[in-house]
Design a protein around this nucleic acid. Sequence first.
RNA 1: GGGCUCAUAGCUCAGCUGGUUAGAGCGCCACACUGAUAAUGUGGAGGUCCCUGGUUCGAGUCCAGGUGGGCCCA
Length: 1186
Amino acid sequence: MFQPFQGTPNYPELEQSILKLWDEGHTFDALREKNRDGEPWRFQDGPITANNRMGVHHAWGRTYKDIFNRYHAMRGRRLRWQNGFDCQGLWVEVEVEKALGFKGKPDILAFGLENFSRACRERVEKFAGVISEQSKRLGQWMDWERSYYTFDDSNIEHIWGFLKKCHEEGWLAQDYRVMPWCPRCETSLSQHESADSYKEITHRSVYVKLPIQENGATENGKRFSGDSFLVWTTTPWTLTANVAVALNPELTYVRARTDDGVMILSKGTVATALKPGYEVLGEVPGRELVGLQYSGPFDDLPLQQESQSKTPRRAVAWEDVGETEGTGIVHIAPGCGAEDFELGKREGLGFIVPVTQSAHFVTDAGFLVGKHALDDVETIFDGLRQRDRLYRVQKYAHSYPHCWRCSHELIFNAVQEWFIRADAGERPARQRLRKAAREVEWIPEYAGKRMDDWLANMGDWCISRKRFWGLPLPFYLDEAMGEIVVIGSRAELRERAVDPAKFDALPELHRPWIDDTELRSHDGQRTLKRVPEVGDAWLDAGIVPFSTVGYNGATDLRMPPESGSIDLDYQAKLPEDSRQETLTFSGIGRGEQRTVDAVQQITSSPLFEPLLLREGNLFLKISAGDDLNIGEVQEIVWPIREASGVDEVNLYWGLAFNQDLQDEIQVAVSTQLSGLREWQPADFITEMREQVRLWFFSMLFMSVALEDRAPYKRAMVYETMLDENGERISKTKGNGVPYDEAVAQIGADPMRWTFCGNPLNKDIRFGYGPIHESARKLITLWNVYSFFVTYANLDKPNLSESIVNRHSSFVNPLDRWILARLQRLVGEVSGALENIEPSNITRGVEKFVGDLSTWYVRRSRRRFWKGENDNDKTAAYQTLHHVLLTLCKLIAPVIPFTAEAMYQNLKAPLPNAPQSVHLCDWPQVDESLRDDELIVEVEGVLQCVSLGHAARKESGVKVRQPLSRVLVQAPSPAMRAAIENWRDTVLDELNVKDLELLDDAGELVTYSLKANLPKLGKKLGPKMGAVRQAFENASPEDARRIGEAAKQGEAFTLQVGDEAIDFAADEVLVQTQQQSGYSFASENGWAVALDTTLNDDLIDEGLKNDFVRAVQNARKEAGFEVSDRIAILLAPGEESRLPHVFEKFGDTIQAETLADELRLVPADYPELMQVKIGDESIGLRVEKSV
RNA sequence: GGGCUCAUAGCUCAGCUGGUUAGAGCGCCACACUGAUAAUGUGGAGGUCCCUGGUUCGAGUCCAGGUGGGCCCA
């Protein structure tokens, strides 16, 4: 009937076999087919960088994605199942450089951009494949063949459209910013990249004197003439770019006489900055120094000239200047430091960039031309000496950023980059973004606060990178006109291209190829080149909500040079569910002027030609008649594009054309819009927390720019993965768990269970320990399953009927209880999935499985191994079968392999069961099976039994030894009834003959009272304390009077201090306690006591139990099957009580041990084993019956 | 400097709108069971709920301040 299952599962083996099963059964395809017409569940996958193999932290996120996708699929929702790969940007370049052994840009250029781009593409394609395989192994279901790739031309073109829109909004700008820069790699690093790369290093810092000039704008000029500002820096090369000094107007400065003249520096730094032998002449408030002019360190260098003529060197005020190091006067070089740059902006200082990308001094650096900023520091010192500017050189140890790739020291350099302004234009982005973000449901909520904080404080978005493998920014500078031309689509690029043929020959929209396409300026006079920069990779990821639904319309068009035709696989670029798989577009047409860029034809319809592409927007040109011209079509189509809403589509039907063609045209047009309508905004996205300001942000930005709304409705974030000791995982420490190893050794499901169980707002501590712990937790479930399978195979019960149809006949309260409990679980798990509380799934299931194992199965065991197949036994089987099947469905989203493995076996008796658990419908709560009272009742029974066990332990009498009587006092009438209902269970569980419920109305009862705080608190206020005391300290008489009144539901009065207060019955909690000679185990109003007096009958029965246990042990040791029949041979001692026991219980013993024979043998009989029964030792042997 | 967040048993975590003696699982110790047995059950030990102050009849829970950890921004 069922495949036998014993022991513990080997997950890796099991999972491989399930993968094979899914593969061969085309289970995933079947699921999609099943949900074909379902309501969409819009999950938007965030692209994983296809850069390297994936790690366990990726598996974490992918587990979440898979859980919710599978759940909604079981709910019948239709999904896109589209995985995404992030394919461009510095991260890819870096890995390729590493693989090729490159040190930086020069190596790349030597290698050739074409080769480099090809290498990048190859790496991405390779690892996309690897990651797909790894993900499949995790059990993640996606349509791997249809993953999106951000390096696709379509993706790129959609970003172009967005950038053009930004330009139209007036947001696009070119500006300088100071970037960390690696001179060896000749690459700027984002802050993200330089964050963790600080190292201790010793520099030669330098104190420089800057003589104050008389010709100042201030009257003080004369006063300080001849004195010098003393400044200090650890980066001497930046002195060439000095444009100001900054000091704190709130600090006190001094004039100090030294061997090198009179210095001005802050009072607090005198001792450390000046060489011994100085003399302080007097103090000066900082504010009196502001505005003083001075001569800079290298005023004579050509690169200084222009700047100086504009802004004379002067002292500016800066509140951030401190005295902890230096001189309290800071040298300012806005071209070489981010803070300096900000200050420079504020003070209008301008800036100088003294070195090239390789840190060599620029051509107008005078004596320093060609020298290296860091290596030739001695030359700089010489220059200072020659100009009498050097006061002192001192070694200085500090923490300084280094390139994380090559470990070279970084420098900071102002470079020109492209920005999207947050606050520019008539409809600035910032407030629109914040508004859109507020519409999103953030999980946990703080993710929304974080997003809002980011949006409120973010600077302009720097979208350019001076790199190679990335989105080519479609910006073309027309310097003569002072114009930026932003290209929004390939059609537009082709239209403006100097040589469209060259454009048509482009293999892909990447460098270096794209750089060859040059534009005509508007007046046709000049040729425009693309800016060399590529885009921020977050543009690539941010556009996917649009690019994956074909927002721009036909995106895969390629223009034939003049005429002829080209076939396009249009379907591949459309959303999965579009209904036009059969349509192929081809052909070319030409319109007048520049309104018509391309005309395509539906090949199967020679009657009209149409579908026109312009600026990335699809619309129709009807050529079947001349009654329409382009302009008219435009008018109709614009609103469709603008609103992308359903209603506007109808406008299209205002066009008059051949009735026969309507359907085809409708299909073609609606696709473009339906993708957006159907799949946007996303119902759900999830990534780790840092993505709030990265991917979530870039998607939001792009969507707000294009559609003025958030592209997702619910966004879930999770925290950081740490190792199991709570340490940050790092490659150098090697404390991470390798995904491939973990999945091969322990399996995916234990990992998935671990991930799912982690609270969203907590970092996960992950390692082999936690995975094993999860595996252990799941063992309980496997045990129950194994128990069921084992006994069902013996009994072959009828399981073909659905229990739900006949549950009314299930009279055994255990069955009713576990089914009620199951309904509650279904509600809990469904709620957890709907409300996106994944950890509540595992919590709920674990608790349930505990109840199932420790109470239902344990209490039902005897029902399963009774001899005959009666109704109760069948009911037990059917109940457990149903519970396990339902449980499989509930855990299917989280641990799909385990669920499938169990389901495959359990479904055997059900002829119409779906072929996979993942094709089952999600369980619904069956209202008729709910029974909350029963659940509460059983909770009480469990507590009572637990106390009974405690009492037994107290008494020191084993459970095997029957006792005559247990006394139980229940805390409430309901609980009394519960015990009454479950009397037999309690008796059996505690192995006692009789249960007596103590009557709490009896004389022997004492009452104790407690105030019902929630009820009384509000009513009494400050008197609460006294009343509480009064209840607890009530005299026995009062307590009895009140207790009995309350029991009857009558009001009563209690004297509290001077006051007699009236109370309602439910304002007091009454507990009663039996006074008697027994010792209780008691808790929460329960009291349980055991009568431990033994008589001969009880002792005999105890011996019988002992004997049966010994026989069962012997059976097991002999390796007999559970169903084998045996003969028992035994040799009791002379004085043994056992023969007497056999007389009394022989039949029972034989029945319980499946013994056909019970034979006494002499003590010297061969191969007897000695066992202990009660206090005596006897010889025992079991043999298989013939 | 600003924002977010966390702090409860050895570990991982529950603890709903304040309410009576703060819970679970794992681990540990002890015991039991022996027809789920490389299982199972029961019990026990183990807590100043980070600190201080406030609100309140009553605070793990609410408020303020602080300490410590994490993340982000500057």
